[in-house]
């Protein structure tokens, strides 16, 4: 990856922004400023504009800026709170907050629901679930017959769609996810508990001239 001299970008987020984010998320001020180190690294990896573009997000996730993935696209879209096609630092912090180990499970369940509600209709439809199953099978180079895929979708709807109306609504999802906590394991990132350890560069010269 090309490297960029520190002169070309701000070394720390504007103080008021960092303080507000620290006040409104589970991150401390120190952790917000450490997240800024990570954000800079990702947001300058391809386009030198301090914003995370989808290619940069894909590069950070997969080491491949061109690799398409339905679920990474959904995460990117949910992080892009202003829906302007890029992830800004504030959006990055507020979204990663959901993945903090100390963030309440209800917030993680709600985020996961929005993630899987591909078309944003307010419920997870059969077709959406089938599309996601086909996407993960394709990603894993797994071949299953259409019947087998239908069976998996049927089986899941039987468990989750309590009122059998053909879609999973937020309450049904909450009930289902609470009974199957393993489904939410990737909604928590232990890294976030010691983010300042992962990005010590902030701590070493914090405030000192370079």
């Amino acid at each position: 990856m090309g490297c960029v001299s520190s002169k070309q970008f701000r070394r720390a987020p504007p103080h008021e922004d960092a303080a507000l984010l620290a006040k409104e998320t589970t991150f401390s001020l120190n952790e917000v400023e450490a997240l800024y180190e990570l954000f800079k690294k990702i947001s300058y990896s391809i386009f030198k504009d301090g914003l995370i573009h989808k290619e940069e997000f894909q590069l950070a996730l997969f080491r491949n800026s061109n690799r398409k993935n339905l679920f990474a696209d959904r995460i990117f879209d949910l992080f892009d709170l202003k829906r302007n096609g890029v992830i800004e630092f504030e959006e990055f912090v507020r979204s990663l907050h959901i993945f903090h180990p100390d963030t309440p499970m209800a917030d993680k369940i709600a985020f996961a629901f929005r993630l899987y509600d591909l078309r944003g209709t307010g419920s997870i439809e059969r077709e959406e679930l089938k599309e996601m199953v086909l996407a993960i099978l394709n990603e894993s180079d797994l071949l299953l017959s259409d019947d087998a895929v239908e069976q998996i979708v049927d089986q899941t709807f039987k468990q989750a769609d309590l009122n059998s109306d053909g879609r999973i609504d937020p309450d049904e999802w909450k009930e289902f996810a609470s009974k199957n906590p393993a489904l939410l394991k990737n909604m928590t990132l232990p890294y976030l508990k010691d983010i300042t350890m992962s990005f010590p560069s902030f701590v070493v010269y914090s405030g000192a001239g370079d």
Binding site: L38, K41, I42, S45, L59, A60, L61, F62, R63, N69, L70, F71, A72, D73, R74, I75, L96, F99, L115, Y116, L129, M132, V133, A135, I136, L137, E139, S140, I152, V153, Q155, T156, Q159, A160, F176, N180, A182, L183, L184, K185, N186, L189, Y191, I195, S198
Partner: peptide, 25 residues
């Protein structure tokens, strides 16, 4: 009798959902 597979368990294995990779970039 095949193990009853849950679609969301399958989906949760996607690399696209493993944001831990962001920290190793």
């Amino acid at each position: 009798e095949p193990v009853a597979l849950n679609a969301f368990e399958l989906i949760s294995m996607s690399a696209g959902l493993n944001l831990g990779n962001l920290f190793d970039s």
